[in-house]
Write a protein that binds this DNA or RNA. Structure first.
Lengths: 167, 167
DNA sequence: TGTATATCGTTATAACGTAACTTTTTTGAT
DNA sequence: ATCAAAAAAGTTACGTTATAACGATATACA
């Protein structure tokens, strides 16, 4: 039976990059904002390359822009406010939100050896830690749910310890 | 009815500090380690003062020890390995684990205005995101579950915006 | 006593993030 | 068109958080 609380995202075919970008532009427009070139560049890289740090994103801007930290952090904050990306607090990296989940809480499973990250969409109505927080009087809730573990893949660097390969 | 997944910790009387310390020493001994003075000092402060950053803890060591960052991070790593403390990833602070929860996952609810932090103990058997991670082949799981929100207390600094007090 | 392990000290620097102020660009009203 | 306001980007400088690498000391116990 399917797990009601956490569903893996993007199980079917990967959505087309251009269509994701145009949906993102629409989301920005609805908020009275625009996806400028740097914003679009960051979002595109996070869509294509998975979790990246602020300085990694910045490094890709050689010549394209001024490439200094405040630019990166402003851009990341902007994309987070729209829900287009999230921060993985446990590794200080950023990751694109599937468009189906821009306004739902998410959970992530992160391999502590290789960084492989699985995205999970949460049903907020069934995520009981939210209820618990509200019962304590908290509002304007925002979730950070990250499970770190070992992914167990054959090519995960950490697995070399387990497969008998020497040195 | 009580929430089965997340239960607030330390609802009853606060345990006695000395008894917590001696239990912590016992936990260290069982692991073949010892609670040295700096370790005990950090743990004690986290027990008494709530979430603190590495450099805040360090600052308290004036003269008592060499007071340099690696000492702090080694000490914090040691206490984390024993389960005596956890890191609040979303605010880069550390917090003491209730002794009842040294080996269970925990969740935290953190006020983004004033830092007030509520500790919640999780039942791992019912924390479905763990199942989801295992189904994906992950093992040696470690949870980071942090809800940030506004605590809504009268004396929370952020509330000044809502109570009509001017500037 | 000697050797292995645990612990701590020290220097230096990497990695992550922000404050504060300036300049440029865009937008929309007149 | 042009001007004022708002949004976005540039720039300098710095603050905060964390780690690498290596050396010194202490402790356990064969």
């Amino acid at each position: 039976m399917p797990d009601p609380l956490f569903a893996p995202t993007e199980n079917a075919a990967e959505p087309d990059l251009e269509s994701q970008l145009s949906q993102a532009r629409a989301i920005a427009r609805k908020a009275g904002k625009t996806l400028t070139p740097v914003r679009e560049y960051f979002y595109k890289r996070l869509l294509c390359e998975g979790p990246l740090g602020a300085y990694e994103l910045l490094a890709g801007l050689d010549g394209v822009a001024s490439a200094k930290p405040p630019t990166a952090y402003r851009t990341l904050e902007f994309l987070q406010e729209l829900g287009l990306i999230r921060k993985l607090q446990s590794v200080s990296k950023y990751i694109a939100t599937p468009l189906s989940a821009v306004s739902s809480p998410m959970a992530f499973v992160v391999c502590r050896q290789c960084g492989l990250t699985e995205k999970l969409e949460c049903d907020p109505a069934q995520t009981s830690v939210f209820d618990r927080a509200r019962k304590s009087g908290f509002d304007q809730l925002d979730a950070t749910i990250e499970i770190s573990g070992r992914c167990g893949r054959d090519d995960c660097p950490g697995d070399r310890l387990r497969t008998g390969r020497s040195t």
